[in-house]
Protein backbone atom coordinates (compact mmCIF):
# COMPACT_ATOMS: atom_id res chain seq x y z
CA UNK A 1 0.00 0.00 0.00
CA UNK A 2 1.34 3.43 -0.86
CA UNK A 3 2.07 5.76 2.08
CA UNK A 4 -0.64 8.13 0.89
CA UNK A 5 -3.27 5.40 1.12
CA UNK A 6 -2.02 4.18 4.46
CA UNK A 7 -2.19 7.71 5.82
CA UNK A 8 -5.74 8.22 4.55
CA UNK A 9 -6.90 4.86 5.86
CA UNK A 10 -5.44 5.37 9.33
CA UNK A 11 -6.74 8.94 9.47
CA UNK A 12 -10.26 7.82 8.59
CA UNK A 13 -10.21 5.07 11.21
CA UNK A 14 -8.76 7.36 13.90
CA UNK A 15 -11.18 10.18 13.10
CA UNK A 16 -14.09 7.80 13.42
CA UNK A 17 -12.70 6.64 16.75
CA UNK A 18 -12.33 10.27 17.85
CA UNK A 19 -15.96 10.97 17.00
CA UNK A 20 -17.10 7.94 18.95
CA UNK A 21 -14.93 8.92 21.93
CA UNK A 22 -16.20 12.52 21.82
CA UNK A 23 -19.82 11.39 21.58
CA UNK A 24 -19.23 8.99 24.45
CA UNK A 25 -17.67 11.70 26.59
CA UNK A 26 -20.70 13.88 25.99
CA UNK A 27 -22.96 11.33 27.63
CA UNK A 28 -21.01 10.62 30.80
CA UNK A 29 -20.27 12.91 33.71
CA UNK A 30 -20.89 13.62 37.37
CA UNK A 31 -24.20 15.35 36.66
CA UNK A 32 -26.66 12.59 35.88
CA UNK A 33 -28.33 13.55 32.66
CA UNK A 34 -30.19 10.98 30.64
CA UNK A 35 -28.89 10.19 27.13
CA UNK A 36 -32.12 11.48 25.61
CA UNK A 37 -31.67 14.80 27.45
CA UNK A 38 -28.12 15.07 26.03
CA UNK A 39 -29.46 14.44 22.54
CA UNK A 40 -32.12 17.06 23.11
CA UNK A 41 -29.49 19.57 24.25
CA UNK A 42 -27.18 18.91 21.32
CA UNK A 43 -29.95 19.14 18.79
CA UNK A 44 -31.13 22.40 20.36
CA UNK A 45 -34.45 21.13 21.64
CA UNK A 46 -33.70 21.66 25.33
CA UNK A 47 -34.87 24.77 27.14
CA UNK A 48 -32.27 27.60 26.97
CA UNK A 49 -31.46 27.73 30.69
CA UNK A 50 -32.07 24.07 31.47
CA UNK A 51 -29.49 22.08 33.42
CA UNK A 52 -28.94 19.56 30.61
CA UNK A 53 -28.30 22.31 28.11
CA UNK A 54 -25.79 24.12 30.31
CA UNK A 55 -23.99 20.93 31.35
CA UNK A 56 -23.85 19.49 27.85
CA UNK A 57 -23.08 22.54 25.74
CA UNK A 58 -21.30 24.88 28.16
CA UNK A 59 -19.39 22.37 30.28
CA UNK A 60 -18.92 19.02 28.59
CA UNK A 61 -18.60 20.11 24.96
CA UNK A 62 -15.93 22.81 25.51
CA UNK A 63 -14.05 20.43 27.76
CA UNK A 64 -14.12 17.78 25.05
CA UNK A 65 -12.79 20.33 22.60
CA UNK A 66 -9.98 21.36 24.98
CA UNK A 67 -9.07 17.73 25.63
CA UNK A 68 -8.94 16.89 21.92
CA UNK A 69 -6.93 20.00 21.02
CA UNK A 70 -4.51 19.60 23.92
CA UNK A 71 -3.95 15.91 23.26
CA UNK A 72 -3.38 16.46 19.56
CA UNK A 73 -1.05 19.39 20.15
CA UNK A 74 1.04 17.52 22.73
CA UNK A 75 1.40 14.45 20.55
CA UNK A 76 2.54 16.51 17.56
CA UNK A 77 4.95 18.45 19.79
CA UNK A 78 6.34 15.09 20.90
CA UNK A 79 6.93 13.97 17.30
CA UNK A 80 8.56 17.32 16.57
CA UNK A 81 10.92 17.22 19.53
CA UNK A 82 11.79 13.57 18.87
CA UNK A 83 12.76 14.29 15.26
CA UNK A 84 14.51 17.52 16.16
CA UNK A 85 16.71 16.01 18.86
CA UNK A 86 16.94 12.63 17.08
CA UNK A 87 16.02 11.29 20.49
CA UNK A 88 13.09 8.87 20.63
CA UNK A 89 12.46 9.60 24.30
CA UNK A 90 12.21 13.38 23.92
CA UNK A 91 8.87 14.84 24.94
CA UNK A 92 7.76 18.29 26.16
CA UNK A 93 7.42 17.32 29.81
CA UNK A 94 10.52 15.09 29.92
CA UNK A 95 12.60 17.83 28.28
CA UNK A 96 11.47 20.29 30.95
CA UNK A 97 9.83 22.50 28.35
CA UNK A 98 6.36 22.08 29.84
CA UNK A 99 7.75 23.16 33.19
CA UNK A 100 9.29 26.23 31.59
CA UNK A 101 5.99 27.10 29.94
CA UNK A 102 4.18 26.50 33.24
CA UNK A 103 6.59 28.90 34.95
CA UNK A 104 5.67 31.50 32.35
CA UNK A 105 1.97 30.89 32.88
CA UNK A 106 2.27 31.16 36.68
CA UNK A 107 4.00 34.51 36.25
CA UNK A 108 1.13 35.59 34.02
CA UNK A 109 -1.41 34.32 36.52
CA UNK A 110 0.24 36.06 39.42
CA UNK A 111 -0.02 39.24 37.38
CA UNK A 112 -3.74 38.56 37.24
CA UNK A 113 -4.10 37.22 33.71
CA UNK A 114 -7.10 34.97 33.13
CA UNK A 115 -8.80 33.45 30.13
CA UNK A 116 -10.59 36.35 28.51
CA UNK A 117 -9.35 36.58 24.95
CA UNK A 118 -6.91 39.46 25.48
CA UNK A 119 -5.57 37.99 28.69
CA UNK A 120 -5.25 34.56 27.10
CA UNK A 121 -3.00 36.08 24.44
CA UNK A 122 -0.78 37.42 27.20
CA UNK A 123 -0.86 34.11 29.03
CA UNK A 124 0.24 32.12 25.98
CA UNK A 125 2.92 34.72 25.35
CA UNK A 126 4.30 34.08 28.84
CA UNK A 127 4.00 30.32 28.25
CA UNK A 128 5.88 30.53 24.95
CA UNK A 129 8.64 32.63 26.49
CA UNK A 130 8.95 30.11 29.33
CA UNK A 131 9.08 27.20 26.88
CA UNK A 132 11.81 28.86 24.81
CA UNK A 133 13.77 29.71 27.96
CA UNK A 134 13.61 26.12 29.20
CA UNK A 135 14.51 24.68 25.79
CA UNK A 136 17.47 27.02 25.48
CA UNK A 137 18.65 25.99 28.94
CA UNK A 138 18.34 22.29 28.11
CA UNK A 139 20.17 22.78 24.85
CA UNK A 140 23.02 24.75 26.41
CA UNK A 141 23.49 22.23 29.19
CA UNK A 142 23.30 19.18 26.92
CA UNK A 143 25.37 20.64 24.08
CA UNK A 144 28.28 21.51 26.37
CA UNK A 145 29.69 18.00 26.03
CA UNK A 146 30.63 16.23 22.81
CA UNK A 147 27.56 15.35 20.76
CA UNK A 148 23.98 15.29 21.96
CA UNK A 149 23.54 11.88 23.51
CA UNK A 150 20.17 10.51 24.54
CA UNK A 151 21.10 10.36 28.20
CA UNK A 152 22.60 13.84 28.45
CA UNK A 153 19.60 15.45 26.82
CA UNK A 154 17.13 13.62 29.06
CA UNK A 155 19.11 14.43 32.19
CA UNK A 156 19.36 18.07 31.19
CA UNK A 157 15.59 18.08 30.63
CA UNK A 158 14.89 16.55 34.02
CA UNK A 159 17.19 19.03 35.76
CA UNK A 160 15.66 22.03 34.00
CA UNK A 161 12.21 20.66 34.86
CA UNK A 162 13.15 20.44 38.54
CA UNK A 163 14.54 23.96 38.47
CA UNK A 164 11.40 25.45 36.97
CA UNK A 165 9.19 23.46 39.35
CA UNK A 166 11.10 25.00 42.22
CA UNK A 167 10.70 28.44 40.65
CA UNK A 168 6.96 27.80 40.35
CA UNK A 169 6.84 26.82 44.02
CA UNK A 170 8.46 30.15 44.92
CA UNK A 171 5.85 32.05 42.94
CA UNK A 172 3.02 30.05 44.48
CA UNK A 173 4.33 30.68 47.99
CA UNK A 174 4.19 34.40 47.32
CA UNK A 175 0.77 34.25 45.72
CA UNK A 176 -2.46 35.69 47.06
CA UNK A 177 -4.27 32.94 48.96
CA UNK A 178 -7.55 33.39 47.07
CA UNK A 179 -5.93 32.70 43.75
CA UNK A 180 -4.03 29.68 44.97
CA UNK A 181 -6.71 27.04 44.46
CA UNK A 182 -7.16 27.77 40.79
CA UNK A 183 -3.45 27.84 40.08
CA UNK A 184 -2.78 24.55 41.85
CA UNK A 185 -5.75 22.96 40.12
CA UNK A 186 -4.39 24.07 36.74
CA UNK A 187 -0.83 23.08 37.63
CA UNK A 188 -1.85 19.46 38.17
CA UNK A 189 -2.91 19.29 34.55
CA UNK A 190 -6.61 19.85 34.69
CA UNK A 191 -8.91 20.29 31.79
CA UNK A 192 -11.60 22.79 32.50
CA UNK A 193 -14.05 24.37 30.09
CA UNK A 194 -12.34 27.27 28.32
CA UNK A 195 -14.46 30.28 27.26
CA UNK A 196 -15.24 30.39 23.51
CA UNK A 197 -12.87 33.25 22.65
CA UNK A 198 -9.92 31.62 24.37
CA UNK A 199 -10.89 28.27 22.86
CA UNK A 200 -10.74 29.80 19.39
CA UNK A 201 -7.31 31.24 20.18
CA UNK A 202 -6.16 27.82 21.40
CA UNK A 203 -7.41 26.21 18.19
CA UNK A 204 -5.64 28.83 16.09
CA UNK A 205 -2.31 28.41 17.90
CA UNK A 206 -2.56 24.63 17.73
CA UNK A 207 -3.30 24.88 14.01
CA UNK A 208 -0.27 27.12 13.41
CA UNK A 209 2.00 24.82 15.41
CA UNK A 210 0.63 21.76 13.62
CA UNK A 211 1.14 23.40 10.25
CA UNK A 212 4.74 24.36 11.02
CA UNK A 213 5.54 20.75 11.85
CA UNK A 214 3.48 18.91 9.25
CA UNK A 215 4.60 21.06 6.34
CA UNK A 216 8.21 20.10 7.09
CA UNK A 217 7.53 16.44 7.85
CA UNK A 218 9.42 15.18 4.81
CA UNK A 219 12.53 17.25 5.50
CA UNK A 220 12.27 16.16 9.13
CA UNK A 221 12.72 12.54 8.02
CA UNK A 222 16.02 13.49 6.40
CA UNK A 223 17.28 14.95 9.66
CA UNK A 224 17.50 11.36 10.94
CA UNK A 225 20.44 10.90 8.55
CA UNK A 226 22.37 13.49 10.52
CA UNK A 227 22.54 17.19 9.97
CA UNK A 228 25.39 17.15 7.48
CA UNK A 229 23.81 14.42 5.34
CA UNK A 230 20.53 16.36 5.37
CA UNK A 231 22.32 19.48 4.16
CA UNK A 232 23.92 17.42 1.40
CA UNK A 233 20.41 16.43 0.29
CA UNK A 234 19.37 20.05 -0.03
CA UNK A 235 17.73 20.60 3.36
CA UNK A 236 18.27 24.01 4.95
CA UNK A 237 19.00 22.36 8.28
CA UNK A 238 19.29 25.46 10.48
CA UNK A 239 16.04 26.91 9.26
CA UNK A 240 14.29 23.57 9.51
CA UNK A 241 15.38 23.09 13.09
CA UNK A 242 14.26 26.59 14.07
CA UNK A 243 10.88 26.09 12.39
CA UNK A 244 10.21 22.76 14.08
CA UNK A 245 11.41 24.11 17.39
CA UNK A 246 9.09 27.11 17.10
CA UNK A 247 6.17 24.89 16.12
CA UNK A 248 6.70 22.34 18.89
CA UNK A 249 7.30 25.06 21.50
CA UNK A 250 4.14 26.88 20.38
CA UNK A 251 2.10 23.68 20.66
CA UNK A 252 3.50 22.96 24.12
CA UNK A 253 3.03 26.53 25.32
CA UNK A 254 -0.57 26.77 24.17
CA UNK A 255 -1.49 23.48 25.83
CA UNK A 256 0.18 24.54 29.07
CA UNK A 257 -1.59 27.91 28.99
CA UNK A 258 -5.06 26.50 28.37
CA UNK A 259 -4.95 23.08 29.99
CA UNK A 260 -1.90 22.96 32.24
CA UNK A 261 1.30 20.92 32.08
CA UNK A 262 0.07 17.47 31.07
CA UNK A 263 2.85 14.94 30.72
CA UNK A 264 3.71 11.96 28.53
CA UNK A 265 1.08 12.39 25.79
CA UNK A 266 3.86 13.28 23.38
CA UNK A 267 5.65 10.06 24.26
CA UNK A 268 2.81 7.52 24.39
CA UNK A 269 0.90 8.49 21.27
CA UNK A 270 3.74 8.83 18.74
CA UNK A 271 5.35 5.59 19.91
CA UNK A 272 2.11 3.65 19.73
CA UNK A 273 1.67 4.93 16.17
CA UNK A 274 5.28 4.16 15.31
CA UNK A 275 4.67 0.53 16.11
CA UNK A 276 1.87 0.62 13.56
CA UNK A 277 3.22 2.96 10.88
CA UNK A 278 6.99 3.02 11.14
CA UNK A 279 9.18 6.08 11.46
CA UNK A 280 7.89 8.25 8.61
CA UNK A 281 7.02 11.65 10.08
CA UNK A 282 4.66 12.35 7.19
CA UNK A 283 2.43 9.61 8.56
CA UNK A 284 3.19 10.22 12.23
CA UNK A 285 2.46 13.94 12.46
CA UNK A 286 -1.15 13.94 11.19
CA UNK A 287 -2.08 10.63 12.83
CA UNK A 288 -0.49 11.72 16.11
CA UNK A 289 -2.75 14.76 16.19
CA UNK A 290 -5.88 12.63 15.95
CA UNK A 291 -4.43 9.87 18.13
CA UNK A 292 -3.40 12.38 20.80
CA UNK A 293 -6.88 13.86 20.75
CA UNK A 294 -8.42 10.42 21.32
CA UNK A 295 -5.95 9.53 24.06
CA UNK A 296 -6.40 12.69 26.10
CA UNK A 297 -10.15 12.65 25.62
CA UNK A 298 -10.32 9.10 26.97
CA UNK A 299 -7.93 9.95 29.80
CA UNK A 300 -10.03 12.98 30.75
CA UNK A 301 -13.25 11.01 30.61
CA UNK A 302 -11.72 8.50 33.01
CA UNK A 303 -10.34 11.33 35.20
CA UNK A 304 -13.66 13.04 35.67
CA UNK A 305 -15.68 9.87 36.26
CA UNK A 306 -13.50 7.41 38.13
CA UNK A 307 -13.86 9.12 41.53
CA UNK A 308 -17.10 11.03 40.77
CA UNK A 309 -18.43 13.32 42.06
CA UNK A 310 -14.84 14.33 42.80
CA UNK A 311 -12.37 14.60 39.89
CA UNK A 312 -8.86 13.44 39.25
CA UNK A 313 -6.47 15.58 37.24
CA UNK A 314 -6.03 14.27 33.73
CA UNK A 315 -2.29 14.75 34.25
CA UNK A 316 -2.47 12.01 36.89
CA UNK A 317 -3.95 9.58 34.39
CA UNK A 318 -1.41 10.38 31.66
CA UNK A 319 1.47 10.07 34.11
CA UNK A 320 0.17 6.74 35.40
CA UNK A 321 0.16 5.53 31.79
CA UNK A 322 3.29 7.34 30.69
CA UNK A 323 5.77 6.49 33.41
CA UNK A 324 5.53 2.70 32.93
CA UNK A 325 5.53 3.23 29.16
CA UNK A 326 8.73 5.28 29.41
CA UNK A 327 10.36 2.50 31.45
CA UNK A 328 9.18 -0.03 28.88
CA UNK A 329 10.75 1.94 26.02
CA UNK A 330 13.92 2.39 28.02
CA UNK A 331 14.24 -1.30 28.85
CA UNK A 332 13.35 -2.75 25.46
CA UNK A 333 13.69 -0.57 22.41
CA UNK A 334 16.45 1.84 23.34
CA UNK A 335 18.45 -0.34 25.64
CA UNK A 336 21.43 -0.53 23.35
CA UNK A 337 21.81 3.22 23.34
CA UNK A 338 21.84 3.78 27.04
Amino acid sequence: MSPRRRLLLVLVVLSAALLVAAAGALFVGSASISPSAVVAAVTGRAAPESVERVVTLAIRLPRIAVAALAGGALAVAGVGFQALTRNPLAEPSILGISAGAAFGVVIGQSLGLGLTLAEAVGLTGFAFAGAVLAAAAVYLIAAAGPGLSIQTLLLAGVIVGIFFSAAITVLISLMDFNRLGGVVHWLLGNLAPVPPGALALFALLAAIGFWLVVSHARALNLLALGEEAAIQLGVGAQRLKLTIFAGAALLTASVVAFAGPIGFVGLIVPHALRMLLGADNRLLVPTSFVGGAIFLLLADTVARNVVAPAELSVGVITSFCGAPFFIYLLRTRYRANL
Binding site: P88, N221, A224, L225, D280, N337
Partner: peptide
Protein backbone atom coordinates in the same frame (compact mmCIF):
# COMPACT_ATOMS: atom_id res chain seq x y z
CA UNK B 1 26.09 5.34 8.61
CA UNK B 2 23.81 7.19 11.02
CA UNK B 3 23.49 5.50 14.37
CA UNK B 4 19.97 4.43 15.28
CA UNK B 5 18.16 5.00 12.05
CA UNK B 6 14.56 3.85 12.36
CA UNK B 7 13.63 3.91 8.67
CA UNK B 8 13.41 1.05 6.21
Amino acid sequence: APAQFPFT
